[in-house]
Amino acid sequence: MIASVKRLVRGPLIRSTNYTIESSTHLFLYVFNQLHIVFMRIVPQSIRVWWQKFLQDIFIAILKVGPIPEHVSFIMDGNRRYAKSNNLPLKKGHEAGGFTLLTLVYICKKMGVKCVSAYAFSIENFNRSEEEVQTLMTLFNAKLEEFANRAQDYKDPLYGSKLRIIGDKRLLTPETRNKLKEVERLTQDGKDFTFYVCFPYTSRNDIQHAIYKNSKEYTEKKIKLNDINLNKFSEKMYLDEFSQKCDILIRTSGHRRLSDYMLWQSHQNSTIEFVPTLWPDFTFTQMCLIFFRWSFFTTIQMYNNDEGTSQYPWKTFMPNIPFMNKNHYEPLESLADPPVSVSILG
């Protein structure tokens, strides 16, 4: 008992110093987090793990019956600040970030999200120091191989997922490019879940690439001019069928900008969430609360949009009253004749 109290007292409860409370949602999260941390420090490890897993499974199962986003996207910001604030080498920060990503991808897959994309490396990141770029590359390769192996192992929860690495691959060395191709080939049969890793990617590059591809195909007479339109344009982009829209875009570490990521996908009717936590600290709870919030508002939106359509079974049994239906218009001639008009002047 004394030991557990000691454990409680020791050190600040929140690990990261960059945690700021900006709104009442964050306050709620903060209190929740604190309570959970206290709870976690009191109970023994085995119960702790079991309890965590149980909570996760239950919450996923509950969320699964509601509306689920199709395309979720992450901007993983704050790895280096995490390393700095915890006095770790930079590499450890990136490793922690990679671990968080794989965990969250697994949860998304379990929840029934069809596609997850993550901003692993920006084209602008080549401006960083040579050493850091190099470590990032090696780490990235290792993580990809791990993912590919897990996607092939039928016992693993990530089994059956497809890995795609998108971006301007001309900027990479030939060896890396071959390796990426090999990893992509290993997982190409995955159907129900796609994981896009944006590796040297910027959204402007993506749009430019689509323009280039369209122009090229037009000059080669593969498509007509009419085929270049709003719907077909995004098919030429890197993210295949998910290029049209990204349902939830999550950016960690509190910056409120997109930093050249998913501009085309998220600039209309998509939810953009800016979270103050650093990426390695971004947990299951926080992500699920974001999903829950989205699910809540989507339920209401769907109800408001789809009232009277086939969504609600009892609506089909309702009689169709002509003048209650606003889409139905009758011409003036079809109205019944009015009574005879008589003037008082005789």
Binding site: G66, P67, I68, G112, M302, Q311
Partner: peptide
Amino acid sequence: VDNRNINTSST
């Protein structure tokens, strides 16, 4: 409402 197969975009 069963929306496991009805995603928002498809609606």
